[in-house]
Design a binder for these strands. Structure first.
Lengths: 124, 124
DNA sequence: ACCTTCTTCAACTAATTGGTTGAATGAAGG
DNA sequence: CCTTCATTCAACCAATTAGTTGAAGAAGGT
């Protein structure tokens, strides 16, 4: 129902699901396999997998009675893109702020100690 | 109640909250300011901000009656670390798989066309 | 003191979530 | 066919979430 990015973030907001993803980076696993370490019913694990599947984080193929779960790493890029975009912007902003603060400090120094000193270039 | 990583992912699973974060990368904003574009009550926005604050994504200082909201970019690193760790692992696995598939293809080629050809080293 | 602005607290509601148990499906293997 | 293994569907429950409205708090302006 929600956009994919929301579904991906929501899916990874659960520690059990994050652990499943972590284990799936090493190898594909069946549902039974995946369920083993957790103290919940098989059905609960099946539900977790549905959440991961709806988010596009995993796919399930068929192999006899088993249903191997496979991690789709490409979806990670969706998150990484979003995160990196805004992190970069935020960092740039801090850089600008740092520059401003540095100039203010310069000004303070100048007026306080060496009023005749010259300005050292402009902000980028 | 949950670990921080879970809270961060959960916080960003909402499009409105993601949009707020996006806007906060450009500049700090007051609650009123932030609420303007959305068609929900001011209280709802205040709640969203509490979620972001509990996740460590924003901090709020005081400035007269206003309460400027400030983005804390460091928390992004927490997510990035988690994502990158497993993405790298997953990619490595695909590389190994690719190598195996390539060798299998080599074997096929060899047995099908040049059965006397020699093997080219072992898998790492 | 009083009023206005900005923000949060409290109580309520509807929808979603993560879990349960019991029954149903699908594919092998006697 | 009948059984067994692996998995899912269905119905239910408790807890959480995202929203609402109404009242309260905190800081200035007059």
């Amino acid at each position: 129902m929600a956009d994919q990015l929301s579904r991906v973030f929501a899916a990874l907001a659960d520690p059990t699901r994050r652990d499943m993803v972590a284990r799936l980076t090493e190898a594909d696993h069946t549902v039974n396999d995946l369920a083993a370490p957790y103290d919940v019913s098989l059905q609960a694990v099946s539900k977790h997998l549905k959440v991961l599947e709806d988010a596009g984080l995993v796919t399930r193929t068929r192999e006899a009675q088993r249903r191997p779960v496979h991690l789709e790493a490409e979806v990670f890029d969706l998150m990484t893109k979003w995160i990196e975009r805004y992190r970069r912007q935020a960092e740039e902003r801090y850089s600008r702020l740092d520059a401003v603060l540095a100039r203010m400090q310069d000004d303070d120094d100048r007026t306080a100690t060496t009023p005749t000193q010259q300005q050292e270039g402009t902000a980028s």
